[in-house]
Write a protein that binds this DNA or RNA. Structure first.
Lengths: 139, 139
DNA sequence: AGGAGTTTTTGACAAAGTCCAAATCTCGGC
DNA sequence: GCCGAGATTTGGACTTTGTCAAAAACTCCT
């Protein structure tokens, strides 16, 4: 991602230390929870309130600067990569999350026959399975 | 779904009033939250503890008798229809959830190229959008 | 530098679940 | 039909994730 400050300005968001730092944290740690990001920001800024982390993440998500994914049984995760229609692979055992390129064609997933009169704007795909490490452990 | 009691026995689960009732509730109210199901069960049995509802739902989910879906920003929902690989349509505004037949082929979604060494056992697809009612309200 | 309008902070609060120990119930055998 | 081992249900406290609201602090524009 480009410079955090530029990104904020481009979206008409006042630049604050907290926002810059959260944005950087998301960039460096894809698939992190709000809590993990808060830790990260604290390491950089010294401190940040829990509320601010949520504020910032919500604003950024609303503006489409970052993406929120929320697998079952886990807190929301945030990531940088947007617009490239990739999906996620989540380990049922340890929760580890990986990116996956879209399995079928390019924007295949939005092709749900526009059912029930809904106006669909996004398709979220989560592949559930077991990661290599956990496969080993189980045996 | 077949008779709740039979279903339980087939999975080697002791038959209890709570389980039978929860199972029936899930059957009658697809996409209900644990709380809604608890209400439903109370109407039938008189009472059930919150913990038991969760216990039962967890056991049933583990055994693959029911399926849990957990859209972002909402409590987990439970449903009866399993094995037919259908997906869900969720309204961003009101949270309304509908079933959708699988958009592509039959079990298309599991076709993610087995990436990262994960052993994939399920693909969950959630289509995000706006339901007809909310589209109307916004205008 | 000054001021209007946003953000951040702080602390209380809410929802959804889990943990644990005690009481109760189910199922299989006698 | 009754008994007992083992599983299930209860109730209550607790955790996690996140939101609400008001006051203090900050950003950006002039």
């Amino acid at each position: 991602m480009r410079d955090p400050e530029d990104t904020l300005r481009q979206h008409d968001l006042p630049v604050t230390a907290q926002r810059v730092s959260v944005l950087r944290a998301v960039s460096h740690h894809p698939h992190a929870t709000a809590d993990m990001l808060a830790e990260e920001v604290r390491a950089e800024l010294g401190s940040i309130s829990r509320q601010s982390v949520y504020n910032v993440l919500n604003v950024l998500t609303d503006k489409g600067i970052i993406r929120r994914i929320q697998p079952a049984e886990s807190a929301a995760l945030y990531e940088d990569r947007i617009g490239d229609n990739h999906h996620h692979l989540v380990c049922r055992t340890c929760g580890k999350t990986e990116d996956v390129c879209c399995a079928v064609g390019e924007a295949p997933c939005l092709t749900a026959q526009s059912h029930h009169g809904f106006k669909i704007d996004e398709a979220e795909v989560i592949y559930w399975g077991t990661c290599p490490a956990c496969q080993k452990k189980k045996r």
